[in-house]
């Protein structure tokens, strides 16, 4: 349970305020695990009963049935401890360089997501800065930035990968481009709001100092936009992760968490799918946690947090 509250804490949720959240969160998480076990038994028992019938085993006790449903090779829904064992087996007991190591695959996905996230954040900030400095861009570009996200980019992820492959661009960059496309949006929208957040009187003050628009940007607008930037970056890094995973699907299940998902679905390895899924979730949660940690540090340094 410690890990859960640690994840929640690192993900930026105050654990202690509001009359204590640790206890309710613990109860909820325990309840989820209990439901998970229960549904594992329920969903896996038809297959188990079928195999009993074939082995001519009769009068199997309910306890045995429950135990057997949780130790199947390819269960419909693996029990939590099966997934935990699989994760332990593929992270600790395998060499990192091995193709069967989950850490190897996680690193590939993680590096792609981070590259895409950095490119997306830079692109978003550049767009936001040019939007607040040019009226024509503000009026013409902003609607298209919003419209760009109604295009399901993940749907064309396979095409981007295949096409870029065809002209010789391979490896991380095509996948990272998908993450970039997804993550520039929250940053651009958030930063436009943030760069416009200083009060009119402050901007007027800068004008009385005869500050150039560059100086106003650097000394007033950017510092004022920091809270907005970090809020957007939290969203951006989470979807950069999604982009990286989906970007790995069409490469033909070579490497990465997405490839693990695809390979698992081809061969019916449900335990493998679930462990990749849990790993991806842990990664995403810790990335969001890192961003909110950076947020706290920066805001503290700037004196806006007590």
């Amino acid at each position: 349970m410690l890990t859960v509250s640690a994840i929640c804490h690192s993900a930026g949720f105050q654990v202690t305020d509001n009359g204590g959240r640790v206890w309710p969160v613990t109860v909820v998480v325990l309840a989820i695990i209990a439901v998970w076990y229960l549904s594992a038994v329920l969903l896996n028992s038809p297959f188990q009963k079928d195999s009993y019938k074939r082995q001519k085993q009769t009068d199997v006790s309910l306890v045995t049935l429950a135990r057997d449903t949780m130790s199947q090779e390819r269960p419909v829904l693996p029990a939590p401890h099966q997934v935990a064992q699989e994760i332990y087996k593929t992270t600790v007991q395998k060499k990192i360089t091995s193709k069967r190591s989950l850490i190897f695959h996680s690193w590939i996905t993680l590096s792609t997501a981070l590259l895409g996230f950095v490119m997306g954040t830079v692109l978003g900030i550049v767009l936001a800065v040019s939007i607040i400095h040019n009226r024509a861009l503000d009026k013409s570009l902003m609607p298209w930035i919003i419209a760009s996200q109604t295009i399901p980019i993940l749907a064309i992820a396979p095409m981007i990968i295949v096409v870029l492959n065809a002209i010789g661009i391979q490896g991380m960059l095509p996948k990272a481009l998908i993450s970039t496309y997804l993550s520039f949006f929250p940053v651009a929208v958030g930063m436009v709001k943030g760069l416009r957040s200083p009060e009119v009187s402050h901007i007027d003050l800068m004008r009385t100092y005869n500050a150039s628009s560059w100086q106003t940007l650097w000394k007033l607008r950017l510092p004022a936009s920091m809270p907005y930037l970090f809020t957007s970056m939290k969203i951006a890094i989470a979807i950069a992760m999604v982009g990286a995973i989906v970007g790995e699907l069409p490469t033909g299940a070579v490497a990465g968490l997405g490839a693990r998902l695809l390979a698992g679905s081809y061969y019916g390895q449900t335990v493998q799918i679930w462990s990749a899924l849990i790993m991806a979730s842990v990664l995403a949660a810790s990335l969001v946690g890192l961003v909110s940690l950076a947020n706290r540090l920066v805001l503290k340094r700037m004196g806006s947090l007590p």
Partner: peptide, 26 residues
């Protein structure tokens, strides 16, 4: 429940839920 489920829900919203697709197809 509000105090318990809201952080969990927030966390889940940040996860790559799309990964459940192969499981659902199964």
């Amino acid at each position: 429940l509000k105090r318990g489920l809201l952080p969990v829900g927030n966390l889940v919203s940040a996860l790559p839920i799309i990964g459940v697709a192969p499981i659902m197809v199964m």
